[in-house]
Each structure stands twice: as C-alpha cells, then as structure tokens.
C-alpha cells in the first residue's frame, strides 16, 4: 500500500529567464497552497487568478509603474496552472491547462477563436497487444527472456484539431494534436522510454510477474494511462 500523494497548488509565476516549466519556488512550501493528501483521481477547483499569474491577463500594475507584460502561450496556445504532487521526498509538477483570453488579438480573431475552440479532451488508450516472433501472445503467458513487441494505440477521436493564434501573423492557424506514449516497467527492459505506439520489451529470464505502465499524452496536456501485470512463464 503506497502512501497517498500530497498535492498543492503553486502560486509563483516563473521568471522570464527561467527555462524550467515552473518557478523553482514552486518546490518551496511558502509558494504553494496545500491541498493535503487527496485520493486519486484528484478533483480540485483551480484558482481564479491562474490566467493572471500564469497566463496573458495583465496583473494589476503598481501605481506609477507601467503594466506588466502579458505572458506568451506555448506552441499550442496554452497556459498552465502548476500543481505539485509529493510522494515521500520526490516532487512532481503537473500542469493543468487553463483557458484564458487571447492576448493582443484583434476583435475578429478573438470572436472566431471563441467560436471554434473546444476544450481539450483527454485522449483514450486502446488495449495493449503483445507479440513474440510475429505471433500475438497473451499478457499472462509471456516467455521468459523473450523479446516482446508491445503495441499500444489510441482511439481516433483522441486526436483533436484546434485553432491557435499565431504570434507572428496574429491569424488563427489550425493545429492537430500530436500524441506521445511513455512506457515504464519494473522488470525486464524496454527499448524506448517514449515512442509513437510500438515498443520492445525484453522479458526477465526467470518466471514471475512484471508491471507495465503506459502513459498517453496529447500536445495540449491531455493524458490517459493504463497499467498491466505481465506474467512471465
């Protein structure tokens, strides 16, 4: 039984010189709002000031000072509220996509964007298929020491199209989501940590069981995951 994850919401925007996805202060206690230990799946109302701290909405200017510069979106036009999850001493940052107004867009572009943009839906994994020497095998009868080809996919409606305000032309450009599969295991060895659908797993030499996790991400922060128990004979 694993201890529960401890969640908190980051309140610190990152500096413009920061390459990381969040400010390092998000790893400090005083820059976060603790949500406490929460059962999965997590359901939380994100702070209302997300678009101001991490998005394009201009924060209130100090009297006599010029207004702050709106933040730029990522390549998909997205802004993200950082969340932090702690398990023992290891910290993980999750980024929840938030919907903010377009910064600096013309009225026509903003109107068209509001009409066309649909909130991102999480992609959906399809069932994992394993083959050995070209023959499909059940996940509970994998030969010890064998090279297993693993194939995972996603449903057709997982790949969505969406408009993005191009920062150069200030026109709306249609984008199509890209998908990435990440693979994790606690036994045997995987050929790739990430792939576009297929991977190779070398089973342990001795019989037993292994766990395999697959995480499917789309380019707008959507995610699906699945876990499998593999039996090695």
């Amino acid at each position: 039984m694993h201890p529960p994850l401890s969640w908190s919401i980051c309140k610190a925007p990152k500096a413009v010189s920061e390459n990381d996805v969040v400010s390092p202060t998000c790893l400090a206690a005083d820059a976060t709002t603790a949500l406490g230990a929460t059962a999965m799946p997590l359901s939380v109302r994100l702070p209302a000031d997300g678009c101001r701290l991490f998005g394009p909405e201009i924060p209130p200017a100090t009297a006599g000072e010029p207004p702050p510069q709106p933040r730029a979106a990522d390549v998909t036009g997205g802004y993200y509220q950082p969340l932090r999850a702690d398990l023992d001493s290891a910290a993980t940052i999750a980024l929840a996509r938030i919907r903010c107004a377009l910064a600096g867009a013309s009225m026509d572009a903003a109107t068209e964007f509001a009409a066309r943009y649909a909130a991102n839906r999480n992609p959906t994994l399809t069932a994992l298929v394993a083959t050995v020497d070209g023959r499909e095998v059940a996940l509970d009868t994998l030969p010890a020491g064998s090279d297993v080809t693993l194939r995972a996919g996603f449903t057709a409606d997982s790949v969505e199209s969406f408009p993005v305000l191009d920062p150069q032309s200030q026109a709306l450009i249609d984008h199509v989501e890209t998908m990435t599969l990440s693979w994790f295991t606690d036994a045997g060895s995987l050929a790739f940590e990430n792939s576009d659908g297929e991977n190779r797993w070398t089973a342990p030499l001795s019989p037993g069981s292994a766990h395999l996790w697959i995480v499917l991400r789309d380019s707008r922060g959507g995610v699906d995951f699945a876990g499998y128990t593999l039996a090695i004979r």
Partner: peptide, 13 residues
C-alpha cells in the same frame, strides 16, 4: 523534479 506534462526532469540550480 519530474515534469509530468512533458515526461522529463527539470533541474534545480
């Protein structure tokens, strides 16, 4: 720390 969105680690300096 682990960046779960991008499936990578980011450094702390």
């Amino acid at each position: 720390y682990f960046d779960a969105r991008d499936n990578r680690f980011d450094p702390l300096f």
